[in-house]
């Protein structure tokens, strides 16, 4: 590479006090790592989670992308910022060191506000989930909805195969369905099923990833993988400069995506202001 660039490039000097650990080569993780590099401002060692994982000796903070990377064993003295690990929560046993999770979903208050901008007439929002980590989001949604007339129905399923039955139960109650990025719930089959159910019954479903708009979601409210990585970088920098950091971090920028065709299929009339403010529109 140095030869390609004319041989004048000095050897890349990596920041030793931080390291990035990834669990997979898949594109979403790479996008997040790019967001991290952009936010961190200088290159850091990028390591792969696995038995041969060795941190730089001076590392004071590790940023883990993916559940596999998050669950690797790190010294208590090293701060861990982990993201892209939906359904994974580092247990309190590891409380010797600082552990911070970068959330993949907006704060429940912000999420509800955005959803109501898209569907102002919504009276009952159903949240379906499997992984235990989402219980706090369900509670948060309920709390956030308390001052309004919006009712939150949160249903924890025992597995992805319970989705058809849960949807059938919710058919009469739901004005809309919100699905977190729960790896134990969402798969190819279930997304197809959701689309069929949503379009057949006129109940829009919303997700947290704009990428899933083309699978039939009426809208998405969430963060881009790039922004998640960027937020991880900012958190890592705070830890390095010994600033206080809470156990959960939310990226700054919420992205709203709208699938106009899906909205039309379910009979949802999205206000013009919401359409105007959308970051991504799928005609």
């Amino acid at each position: 590479m140095a030869t390609l660039l004319g041989g004048s490039l000095p050897a890349v000097v990596l920041a030793q006090e931080a390291a990035v650990v990834t669990g997979s080569e898949l594109r979403p993780y790479q996008e997040a790592v790019q967001g991290f590099q952009a936010g961190f401002g200088r290159p850091v060692a990028q390591l792969k989670a696995g038995s041969g994982l060795r941190l730089p000796p001076d590392a004071r903070v590790v940023v883990a992308f993916g559940g596999k990377a998050a669950l690797a064993r790190y010294p208590d003295a090293v701060g861990l910022v982990y993201c892209m690990a939906p359904g994974t929560r580092i247990g309190p046993v590891r409380n010797g060191g600082l552990r911070v999770k970068v959330r993949m979903h907006p704060h429940p208050r912000d999420l509800l506000r955005r959803l109501r901008e898209i569907q102002p007439g919504m009276k009952t929002l159903v949240m379906l989930w499997v992984s235990e980590d989402y219980a706090s989001i369900a509670d948060g949604l309920r709390e956030a909805a308390e001052p309004s007339d919006l009712r939150i129905v949160s249903e924890r399923l025992s597995g992805p195969d319970d989705l058809p039955e849960a949807l059938r139960r919710m058919r009469a109650k739901a004005d809309a369905i919100w699905l977190p990025l729960d790896p134990r719930l969402l798969n190819e089959d279930n997304l197809d099923l959701l689309k069929e159910f949503s379009w057949a019954n006129g109940i829009p479903f919303y997700t947290a990833s704009a990428d899933l708009l083309e699978r039939g979601a009426a809208a998405s409210v969430g963060f881009s993988f790039h922004d998640i990585g960027h937020a991880a970088a900012q958190t890592a920098l705070k830890i390095l400069s010994k600033e206080a950091v809470g156990p959960d971090v939310f990226p700054d920028r919420i992205q709203v995506g709208i699938n106009e065709a899906a909205a039309s299929k379910v009979g949802l009339r999205i206000p013009a202001e919401a359409l105007k403010g959308a970051d991504r529109l799928l005609p």
């Binding site: 669990g23 898949l26 993916g66 669950l71 359904g87 990025l181 083309e214």
Partner: peptide, 20 residues
């Protein structure tokens, strides 16, 4: 497509969560 990549990401995380 982006959706396939996101589903791939979810499948990867499902594998991790199931195993751990």
């Amino acid at each position: 497509s982006p959706s396939t990549e996101t589903i791939g990401f979810l499948a990867e995380e499902a594998r991790v969560v199931t195993a751990s």
